[in-house]
Amino acid sequence: MPHCHGKTAMELALSRRNLQDMNREVVKADSATTRIPEVDFEIPPYTQKGSLSTIEGLIDRAVAGLEQDQQLRNATAPAVAVKIDEFIDKLKKLKEGGFTLVIDDPSGNSFVENPFAPQKDEALSVSHYKRTPQQDAQLGIKAEDEEKPSNDIDCMRNEVLTFNTNCPECNAPASTNMKIVQIPHFKEVIIMATNCDDCGHRTNEVKSGGATEELGTKITLHLTNVSDMSRDLLKSETCSILIPELEFELGMAAVGGKFTTLEGLLKDIKDLIVSKNPFTCGDSSTSDRTEKLKLFGEKIDKIMAGEMDVHIVLDDPAGNSYLQNVYAPDPDPEMTTEKYTRTFEQNEDLGLNDMKTEGYQE
């Protein structure tokens, strides 16, 4: 399995409620730890190769691994063999009742299928966290040297900085351009763009140029005209997207940070959910799932054509997302912006609860 490490670590937790959950597809990277707390079962990282399987397949694979040397144990350590037989029975009985499957992956590359996509899966929770230096070392990631602060911010605003990197597609040497841009009536952002001369792959990413705001921001736009598709939009990496009329919710890290238009964001959502979905082709594909996602793509097309009356909601706990007000500096009659106090869980996701900005030298 390719070692293309995500920017944050990931923990997936699924509460198995019915027999159909056993058929959920699972991508488990070799760096992931797999746990079933109810039976004190754990598969440490790097003890198994990465795999594409189902939840039932994961359990069957674990059972097969434990049964492999039972004949030898019966001859050399019968007491140990009896205990392992008892534990194997516990694993097999998991198929009959409820349990929780936890996949903790520092590389951020593991995945558990959401059969209700594009709707939210109530039984599945995904949390992202910052890797520790020890986890970075295990993954072979070298910590980047801290950049020395510039004494001339005005010069940085007026020039494009270039640094060497590798193409995320073919891993060939490439260069990334970085520019600080001021968005009118909002704030500064950092736009980073990579263009690979070898394979032609292009990518762009937006980072907020400022600190996390004191309050979260929730922007709601009522789409009433196809001209709304040309509104400029900044979606930070901490922003979730909701379309209530479609019962659709996209988590904060799914698309990454982007500076685009509303039409560009909807095209990205369609590509992510429909066109580039790895579970819509090959053995993973089912006619019911393919039809459901096709219908969702048709609804997105109708929204972009102005044929559906919907609301677009940008919910950013960090307060660093933006949607253009075409009536600025006057209020926009079709758009509302709500400031709210973050919950403890949202501060935890943003890494703010443990952040110490005063007296940290002590």
Rank of each mutant, 00 (worst) to 15 (best):
P133H: 12
C281W: 14
N158V: 00
R157Q: 10
E213R: 09
G264I: 11
I59Q: 02
A62Y: 11
L19P: 00
G319L: 07
C196N: 09
K7H: 13
L58V: 03
M156V: 01
A62F: 07
E122W: 02
S284E: 13
G359F: 11
G57S: 13
L19G: 02
C170A: 05
L242Y: 12
E249W: 03
R289V: 02
V39C: 05
F99H: 07
A172T: 10
L265Y: 11
I103K: 14
E245K: 15
V326C: 10
R73E: 05
K258D: 03
M355F: 13
L12W: 09
T280C: 11
A64R: 09
I183S: 05
L223K: 13
S321Q: 02
F259V: 04
A75W: 14
E334K: 10
L323V: 07
I312V: 14
I300Y: 07
V82W: 01
V189P: 05
K356G: 02
D301G: 00
P333Y: 14
Q138A: 01
T290E: 13
K90L: 11
C170V: 07
E25W: 13
P78R: 12
P173T: 15
T132K: 05
S150R: 13
E147L: 10
L350I: 01
E159H: 08
T290H: 15
N320K: 13
D145M: 04
N353L: 09
E237W: 15
G97W: 14
I190S: 05
A79F: 09
D136C: 03
I36K: 07
K235N: 07
G297M: 01
A254C: 13
D332P: 00
V206I: 02
D198I: 01
D154N: 03
L293N: 04
T212S: 08
L266P: 04
A254S: 12
K179W: 15
T33Q: 14
S285A: 14
D105L: 12
G264Y: 15
K130F: 14
E362S: 10
D154I: 01
E147R: 14
K142N: 03
E338N: 04
L12K: 10
T336V: 06
S240W: 12
L234C: 05
A32F: 00
E96R: 06
C4P: 00
S240Q: 14
H5T: 04
L139N: 03
T220M: 15
I191F: 10
Q119C: 08
C170G: 04
T357N: 07
L233Y: 09
A137C: 05
K218D: 07
T286Y: 13
E188I: 00
I300A: 01
E245D: 06
F279R: 13
T194A: 03
M335I: 07
R289E: 03
R35K: 12
V26T: 07
T8R: 11
C239D: 08
F116E: 09
M156L: 04
A137E: 06
K148A: 00
I241W: 09
N225K: 15
N151V: 00
A172I: 08
G282K: 15
F259H: 13
K299F: 02
L314R: 06
R16L: 12
C199W: 11
Q138F: 08
T165E: 10
D315S: 06
I190A: 07
L124A: 02
L52D: 13
E358N: 08
I241Y: 11
Y340T: 00
D30A: 02
C196V: 05
R16W: 02
M10D: 01
S227K: 15
P115F: 00
P133F: 10
T132A: 01
G50D: 10
L14R: 03
